[in-house]
Design a protein around this nucleic acid. Structure first.
Lengths: 138, 138
DNA sequence: ATCCTATACTAGACATTGTCTAAGTCAGTT
DNA sequence: AACTGACTTAGACAATGTCTAGTATAGGAT
């Protein structure tokens, strides 16, 4: 967590109160938040922080590889601070809840050359869809 | 293609000019279009078709399982008419191009029970990310 | 410690994508 | 041919994300 701030500073990031707060919100809760939720939590500590800054900061963190942008079925993207531990996602089709999961195997090796169409593969993301215990109980 | 219209009629779909045009646009080009692109192409044939109708029709086709909604990195969802042939997607991180691909193996069997957290799994979607030949040449 | 400047922040307008509503229209049935 | 519930329309609204012009500030230089 202060690891994150350390790494960022080493990469020449100028440290500001706004960026610190956004980073703290992200790492503080190990859940997937939307930009708006992050803004709300950040504003609780730093009331004048603007939406634009939150969006910019998130974009930078994604570019730096410190945070992963997850696009689910919901309108808004969510941000996953767990970027350094490779993982995939399990989504409840009913309530939208998201969990990080770790399947065995490597999807990239499952894609034969004939199916790569000349692409240089970078990574693969698996989204498992299902119904969570809470929703199937209802 | 007229298969699609057949199936829909059998399921009690009321057939209208608007729905026919949207279905034809979808099946006519085997690419992934956004709702707006579909609207533009539909309007070329049926100028007074409204955005709401396109959105409604796409939503119905998705509910009926005739079309798959694909959420990529881009803002807008895209619609994939290839719903009856299970497949996954290969996306160019540079230009956003999407191809359908068929990896070997079954991702669902790669998710051990201990990683399912009580979810009832329905399906899994793999998104491969890489750079397409055109973009890596540039 | 102070100054300087590139970088970052803010407010708010704007853009894009998707949803909803009220009123009018039409497909398919009788 | 009339009827009726389902469909469509225009446009307002909502949610999410981007951009700009002006202001503030972090961190290096002095």
């Amino acid at each position: 967590m202060s690891d994150l701030l350390e790494r960022l500073r080493e990469r020449g990031w100028r440290m500001t109160a706004q960026r610190r707060v956004v980073a703290e919100v992200l790492v503080g809760e190990h859940v997937h938040l939307t930009a708006d939720e992050i803004h709300a939590r950040a504003a609780a500590r730093l009331p004048e922080i603007s939406r634009a800054t939150v969006y910019n900061t998130l974009g930078e963190l994604v570019s730096l590889g410190e945070v992963i942008e997850v696009t689910t079925v919901k309108r808004a993207k969510t941000y996953d601070p767990n970027a350094h531990r490779p993982h995939h996602h399990l989504v409840c089709v009913h309530c939208g809840a998201v969990r990080d999961v770790h399947p065995t195997g490597n999807p990239i090796s499952d894609l034969p050359a004939s199916e790569r169409f000349g692409f240089t593969l970078r990574d693969a993301e698996i989204t498992y869809r299902g119904v969570c215990p809470g929703c199937s109980a209802g």
